[in-house]
Computed example of a mutant assay.
Amino acid sequence: MAVFHDQLNRVVSLPAVPKRIISIVPSQTELLFYLGLDTEVIGITKFCIHPEDKFKTKAKVGGTKQLNIEQIRTLKPDLIIANKEENERSQVEELMSICPVWISDIHGLDSALDMIRAVGSLVNRETEAITLCDDIITRFTHLTLPAINQKVAYFIWRKPYMLAGTGTFIDSMLQQCGLKNAIDKDRYPELTSQEVVTINPDVIFLSSEPYPFKQKHIDEFKLMLPKAKVMLVDGEMFSWYGSRLLYAPGYFSSIVKALTLN
């Protein structure tokens, strides 16, 4: 019996290397496929859209916060990989009656790298996970961006407006870009239009997920804050903490370049 600890410091015991894995976190699903677990992953959520060919062929077990528990039970997994923030606690606790559940808790780059290494160990892909982490570290180390000294408001939802605050992975990625979060509230606060105006950010990022902000919303924010720079940004680059981190530094460079040119 192999004994592991997840990022909540829970003991997770596995009698053997897992052969039937369900991932209920999109970025961790992508990571599992990156590590070569094409056969072992038997179930994913409807939001686990990468890689596209695997999304088309794998069983869908509902959404990250609206899981089909009975379907998961029917699939007979021997490991479920979850996340403290992205999944509902009550549902995750129910899944624990089916099989071992390993839960991640991500706040920044270091905890994301710890997760990758730990998952690699869980699924017998230690070498691949370490190589991936080394590559990610190298790319972030080479990310040398100027401190722009601008306050950014990162919007994740509309009606009501919800923004990424402190203590979030998104906040840590904004810091990697040399930007300061205009929101000093914890987690994902809701703000009124007047509160947004009062904060008066220099930059507004409209994320592609979970709310699908589009070009038309740029006009809405420019009316609200005519002096602010308003940009659509790829939410996956700011909030996916698996193998997609390989591409984040290059994307952040392009974002900062666009800000300094405007």
Rank of each mutant, 00 (worst) to 15 (best):
G36L: 09
L37P: 09
L37K: 05
L37N: 02
L37E: 12
D38S: 06
D38K: 14
D38T: 11
D38I: 08
T39K: 14
T39F: 01
E40I: 02
E40V: 00
V41A: 06
V41S: 01
V41R: 00
I42V: 15
I42S: 04
G43Q: 11
I44S: 03
I44W: 00
T45R: 09
T45C: 05
T45S: 13
K46E: 15
F47G: 01
C48E: 07
C48I: 01
C48P: 10
I49N: 06
I49A: 10
I49G: 02
H50I: 01
H50D: 12
E52D: 10
D53N: 14
K54V: 00
K54Q: 15
F55Y: 15
K56H: 14
T57R: 09
K58T: 08
K58A: 03
A59I: 14
A59P: 08
K60F: 05
K60I: 02
V61P: 13
V61I: 14
G62S: 11
G63C: 07
G63A: 10
G63S: 07
T64M: 14
Q66Y: 09
Q66F: 14
L67R: 04
L67W: 07
L67T: 06
L67S: 04
N68M: 10
N68C: 09
Q71E: 14
I72G: 05
I72D: 04
R73K: 15
R73P: 02
T74V: 12
K76E: 15
K76V: 04
P77L: 03
D78L: 06
D78W: 08
I80M: 07
A82R: 02
A82T: 09
A82V: 03
A82C: 06
A82N: 04
N83C: 04
N83T: 11
K84F: 13
K84R: 14
E86C: 09
E86Q: 13
E88C: 02
E88R: 15
R89H: 15
S90R: 13
Q91W: 02
Q91I: 03
V92N: 02
V92W: 13
V92C: 12
E93W: 05
E94F: 02
E94A: 15
L95P: 11
M96W: 04
M96I: 05
M96N: 10
S97I: 01
I98L: 14
I98W: 01
I98M: 12
C99K: 08
C99M: 05
P100E: 07
P100K: 06
V101S: 08
V101F: 07
V101W: 07
